[in-house]
Design a protein around this nucleic acid. Structure first.
Lengths: 227, 227
DNA sequence: CGCGGCTTTGATGTTCATCAAGTAAAGTGG
DNA sequence: CCACTTTACTTGATGAACATCAAAGCCGCG
């Protein structure tokens, strides 16, 4: 836990605390708590009490819930896809868990502090509403997109999600296992592997362990679009 | 379009405008526009510009989007499951359509008016955040629940959704067609019908056209839970 | 009353899960 | 650091779940 007061220079400031005054920022800065998590560490546990408003400063995390002893991945989030976001204002307990997929840094504020800020600073409130709206929208749309596709389309979709949205590169290291991909798209691990192998044989991607290189992106986009 | 100023007596007032002062309520009341829609009518069209903050006063609606010429139903909403809720603060255009499943009445305010209210009234802002959070949560959880179940579990889930959440009765008229159930749970119309027929043969439900009576609810709950 | 959409059932084929079995990789304790 | 254990990955074979195609009856509505 670190609390060095560098919020003014924080790259997230203009994004998250857009409408916070200099005075508010100083107060906020002395209160905020930064935590680091190594890859694989649990950041939020399903069912635990919501005490803090947590956002991701750097790294990558997965949101998931347990159901019938199986993990169901809701979304993979990078900084500014607020982590503690879904139930935070409407529930007393988290409805899902959050785990670091890469070394990550979070910044947290007491939930009451953020609520007070919402009450006292209208522009901040509106900004927060917008952001929460957008995050929820994205999760819902993603979920609908995945649902309407078949196995091959879902795999293609996930690969493009990493390439375009997370890493902005046609070559990247998968931050999750084949099993986790399966948990994300709602299919079995074996079929995820089979499909990846098919894509490799069809010269759409190159695979080297966790490293993926997209060779034929137009084809991948076609498969994703057509399901 | 009606604008009779009865907001003070409106049953939604205490739920939605909990934290709105008497003065604000009067202003709000003269501005709000009430609209009635008959069963089947389009309330919001995907892609149209978001101008109003719309909430459902009475009736029942479906949220859906078009993808590949097919409708994909996001949720079935009753009053207070705010209709114009998902993208309303974060987008310029609606990402989905809303259609009345039963005769419905909506109440709308200019979106700018609500934004101003958020800015000027902190408690209202917090209240709205909570409500939006809850709606988004519910949609996401519902979607995850449906996704993890197989055909029979999904059908059981939908029947229980209507019985418990929408109508609070073990006997009700389905507000949607078999085809729409299929669009909601992501399966084909034929298999929806087949499964309903199976449930009938197994004496779990009685079917008479659109009328459904749940006879063996524990069994239906078991099927829903186990997938 | 006849047309189009909704409903229903059956037959068939595709997609996907399950089971099995083996290899590779990664973590663990002596 | 090596033997050991566990976990992840991979491929194949089989069967179950589901989509698709087809055909016919039904219902509401102009």
């Amino acid at each position: 836990m670190v609390n060095n007061c560098d919020c003014e220079g924080c790259e997230l400031r203009s994004l998250f605390f857009n409408n916070v005054s200099a005075t508010e920022l100083i107060s906020l800065c002395t209160i905020k708590i930064e935590k680091t998590f190594i890859k694989g560490e649990l950041i939020i546990e399903e069912g635990s009490e919501i005490e803090d408003f947590i956002y991701l400063k750097s790294g990558l995390v997965k949101l998931y819930r347990i159901s019938d002893d199986e993990e169901q991945i809701i979304t993979i989030a990078k900084p500014l896809d607020f982590v503690s976001l879904l139930s935070v204002f409407s529930n007393r307990h988290f409805k899902y868990s959050v785990r670091a997929l890469e070394d990550s840094v979070t910044c947290s504020l007491k939930i009451q502090y953020v609520k007070d800020l919402v009450k006292s600073n209208g522009n901040f409130a509106l900004d927060l509403l917008e952001k929460m709206n957008r995050i929820a929208d994205n999760i819902i749309i993603e979920s609908l997109e995945i649902r309407r596709k078949h196995l091959r389309g879902r795999i293609a979709h996930v690969l493009l999600y990493f390439a375009d949205y997370i890493y902005s590169s046609h070559e990247f290291d998968l931050p999750i296992s084949r099993k986790e991909i399966a948990e994300y798209i709602g299919m079995t691990t074996e079929n995820v592997i089979r499909t990846l192998s098919e894509f490799r044989k069809d010269k759409i991607i190159k695979i080297n362990g966790k490293t993926i290189e997209i060779i034929n992106k137009p084809m991948l986009e076609k498969i994703s679009a057509l399901g």
